[in-house]
Amino acid sequence: MASQLTFIGAGNMASAIFGGLIDNGYPAEAITATSPDESMLEQHRARYGIHTTTDNVAGVSDADVVILAVKPQIMREVCEPLQEALQISRPLIISIAAGLTIDTLSQWLGDDSLPIVRCMPNTPALVGKGATGLYAPPGSGEDHRALASDLLSAVGIVEWVEEETQLSAVTAIAGSAPAYFFYMLEAMENAGVERGLSRETARRLAIQTALGAANMASESEHDPQTLKQQVMSPKGTTERAIASFEQAGFEKMVDDATLACFERAESLARELRDQ
């Protein structure tokens, strides 16, 4: 029998996850989503056939798993009214909220013995190509870890980290990283237009090239450095382009950007803890 899942929050990431589950055969009748937005819930009922409610407490009362999928800034006001109901149902809690530590969530949920798994998904989960980092504290049950893995793998790959602070690194190289690639695509599109291509042609070529390169990297036995070298020939066009990237400090730019993201994730955790 499928676990009863309740999503507190029914926005894009929540719908990506329960939509992916349903596409992979998970029974829609075992899924509930909550939101104050009745029109959004109506759309989800019509599209997915799931249960919906505007009452968070009612939503968690019979849940085996509760997925916290609201913005970090409102998580406290969402969690505190659930304390009594969660004491009775004692589900597995999965949080997809950036920056909120397990200690903070436990405090807001009123019980440090509730099983909690934190995860950091990214937006390609919306098309079933997500990359999610997962963390559970020492002593967490293997059944809880396995269940979290099964649920999140419905929308992409999952990787477990050993320390909770490593989720900030996951944010830097996966959670926020789709925007880095979109930025690169934007720059390539503009460069193509500058060199005479139509915007539509430049965009299609850049996107397809990114897709092909990602698939090659995923399926190849070689690392990215080797794959890069295989595209280059001595004194050729690609070598000249890579040399230009190197002279501009491309690798340091990427390192600086991911460091800035990592540090902001850490500071956000502190701000949310102290709110």
Rank of each mutant, 00 (worst) to 15 (best):
S149A: 05
E246Y: 03
E164Q: 01
F181E: 13
Q247D: 11
A248P: 07
Q230L: 07
A202Y: 07
R145E: 07
A172S: 10
V155I: 15
A243E: 09
V127A: 10
E219Q: 13
N122Q: 05
M253Q: 02
Q166D: 15
E239L: 08
A241V: 00
Q230F: 00
K235H: 06
E221L: 02
A146H: 11
L197R: 04
A146K: 08
L151E: 03
G141R: 15
I207Y: 13
T209N: 06
G156W: 06
E142K: 12
A191N: 02
R195V: 00
G192D: 14
F245C: 12
V158R: 02
E200A: 14
E163L: 12
N190G: 00
V170N: 01
V155Y: 08
L167C: 09
R203I: 01
F181L: 14
T123Y: 01
E162A: 00
P178I: 06
A179R: 06
R203P: 09
L134T: 05
M253Y: 14
G133W: 00
S149Y: 08
A148C: 03
L211S: 12
S220I: 05
G249C: 08
G139N: 09
S140H: 05
Y180P: 03
A125Y: 15
G128M: 10
K228L: 11
P138T: 09
I207S: 04
V158F: 06
S149R: 08
C119Q: 13
I207D: 03
S218I: 07
K129L: 14
A210P: 08
Q247I: 08
A187Q: 06
W160L: 00
Q247R: 13
A213D: 09
V231A: 12
A131E: 10
A248M: 15
A148T: 09
T171C: 02
H144L: 06
I173V: 14
G175S: 03
Q247F: 10
L152T: 00
R204S: 13
L185M: 15
Q225P: 08
P138W: 11
V231F: 05
E251V: 02
A169R: 05
L185P: 09
L197C: 06
P124V: 05
A213F: 00
G192P: 03
L152G: 02
S198A: 12
T132K: 04
S168H: 15
G236M: 08
